[in-house]
Design a protein around this nucleic acid. Sequence first.
DNA 1: CAAATACAGGACTCAGCCGGTCCTGATTGA
DNA 2: TCAATCAGGACCGGCTGAGTCCTGTATTTG
Lengths: 163, 163
Amino acid sequence: MLRISKLTDYAVVLATELASGTAPRSVTRLSAITGIPAPTTSKVLKSMTRAGLVDSVRGKTGGYRLSRPADRISVAELIRAIEGSIAVTECADENDGYVCSLQGDCGVRANWQRINRAVEEALESVRLSDMAVPNSPLVPLLRSQDEAEEKRHAEALEVENHG
Amino acid sequence: MLRISKLTDYAVVLATELASGTAPRSVTRLSAITGIPAPTTSKVLKSMTRAGLVDSVRGKTGGYRLSRPADRISVAELIRAIEGSIAVTECADENDGYVCSLQGDCGVRANWQRINRAVEEALESVRLSDMAVPNSPLVPLLRSQDEAEEKRHAEALEVENHG
DNA sequence: CAAATACAGGACTCAGCCGGTCCTGATTGA
DNA sequence: TCAATCAGGACCGGCTGAGTCCTGTATTTG
């Protein structure tokens, strides 16, 4: 799993759609285009508005439009808009006043926080404009040659064990 | 959010503990050490056993122990052991026979899959042995200087909008 | 001004699953 | 044989994710 919510997925789809024009489009319209149920579409867009990612225009010719160019909106921001903060583990949420019920000094905690940062930064680097392109060269996460090599090794081992 | 489950967190904690020795340790023992409730500890270890990450030994002197050296077990494997597959979005799950209810050719889908891969590879590169060390230099995910620069820029903008 | 169209902001519901417990075997060491 | 241990379920309660709906407010248009 390691899931992001369905609503977040919708947010990305809607944002991608909005990226294709500048005139505000209504919930009804966007719902029809994307296939996302109207009330849900509305709900998602409201969250995005509060997060400052889209602007809303009321009245007869109103609707929603991106508040910034698509290359200035990151996937991480979209996730945050819908889900609050990005925290892989409860104890990795740096904003939260969470107290761990397990043994006090589990060194694991600090490491989760770093993994979390890593994931967050990866998502930060993917922009809405990248998502709009069907096969853009996204996030070249693999770092060095040798790390890739080690990885392949680990995967090979794993196959042995699973197969 | 973008959460992994609490159980997965437990799995990492337990595995980390197991990494500190080779003799099998019982659920009771591990529960006492980690602070994780015994039945839950048992449940998690059973999943890990099925996934081939730990070996179980029955009988009076039985218990659990790692099936491999800690540097041969990745965080990704632990996650998979508990949560099945690693899939950021439902539609990004390559194993699943999921049919998207939205409009047919959303280019977003392929991109989610790639983000997913990126995250998965990042988690694959983090090993249990890394988690055991309080402050190991984990996943240097940031790639190039300029990307980091652009990121900072985006964050600055975001602060403006939130403040 | 009045009507129609849109968004804003909640309250509300329903289902799924996560976290947790417990029970009944099977296995093994003493 | 007895006690300790794991195996494999069933089971349950509560949270929250996904979705709907209702009331209010803003804006355009005739």
